[in-house]
Write a protein that binds this DNA or RNA. Sequence first.
DNA 1: ATGTGCGTAACGCTTTCGGGTGATGCTCGT
DNA 2: ACGAGCATCACCCGAAAGCGTTACGCACAT
Lengths: 203, 203
Amino acid sequence: MTSILVCDDSPLARETLRRAVATVPGVDRVTTASSGEEVLRRWTADRVDLVLMDVRMPGLGGVESVRRLVSTDPTARVIMLTMAEDLDGVALAVASGARGYLHKDASRAELRATVSQALADPTWRLAPRRLRPAEVGSAPTLTAREIQVLEGMSHGRSNAEIGRDLFLSEDTVKTHARRLFKKLGASDRAHAVALGFRWGLVR
Amino acid sequence: MTSILVCDDSPLARETLRRAVATVPGVDRVTTASSGEEVLRRWTADRVDLVLMDVRMPGLGGVESVRRLVSTDPTARVIMLTMAEDLDGVALAVASGARGYLHKDASRAELRATVSQALADPTWRLAPRRLRPAEVGSAPTLTAREIQVLEGMSHGRSNAEIGRDLFLSEDTVKTHARRLFKKLGASDRAHAVALGFRWGLVR
DNA sequence: ATGTGCGTAACGCTTTCGGGTGATGCTCGT
DNA sequence: ACGAGCATCACCCGAAAGCGTTACGCACAT
């Protein structure tokens, strides 16, 4: 009976991660939490074999959550999930007791491999490895152009205006729009902008 | 007699902060509040030397709370507490009158240092970041219905679908949409969603 | 060399949006 | 009693958006 707890404040990331780790061989149960506080609150009653925890969360935040969790239960195994460039957070997290970290845009295969390894070896600690954005896991990978178009949308620009901004024809902007909608799973530009914010692709 | 007010909607974060600032030399009294409304309500009767306030809270939210507090009492000193991701919120808060900000996962030492400094120097203030004119000023106040419609948009629902969700006619949804566009200064639904995220009205 | 992904562009077609305007009823506070 | 604000609904109409499809050149990897 192997259980994993996915902790992320973003429902989207949570679901994606949940589905991803559920496919790891030997994993019987995947639960989710939306905050470090929730993990701590549930820990005594609902202990799991491995915790995947986001670094950046409202409230306690990943780092402090790991610190507290490990200080109450040194056998707790935690892998931190990080978006990018917050290496300070990762270093702190590892220093606080996390076994290692994974980039959120790691490939599904890498995620599964890491989880398998962490489950197989209780003493395992991850050597940080940088992974190429690949076919899944979490944040959809948009091209530079697609992000530019998405940003234009988030500033209330019409396709024609975005085209003028980027020296493109309106039809080309529409093509980029269509493609980024598909990648994000968005039904329209408003949805796309929302998903862009939730994934941290735009601000 | 130096007093500090900690304002955060999360009880755990509130307690953590309370304990942390209580250890700062010279601090005699630490009170807590769970919402910006509560701070405003209690301000005249229960004035404090420094307020630590969370950016992201239900109801008024940190930004608007600071704005109102400072507009009623310009001597009020507020430090915003924030997560790494909402830099816009920080900038808005500082522009609205907050003296500075702290990351929630800042170290205890950092927290104490910042609080000490703010207490020692009543004029202490972070240099406000340059903001677009549209972003300065008061947070747009949307009605409950308007927020529901905005949320629907952020989930990619069409006006007709939002209407079915909320048991309204499509025309009514359109009216709400038009009004919230005007309030937010949005040019279309994508822009409105983006502004909703930037103001912390939706997530 | 062959495929795959990206960037660019176009055309037709349907759906949806957004603005303008007007209207009714309700609940506040003054 | 009155206006202000909110919620509700309706109609028209032009302007966008969104979708399917096709196509070409280019880079990069298998």
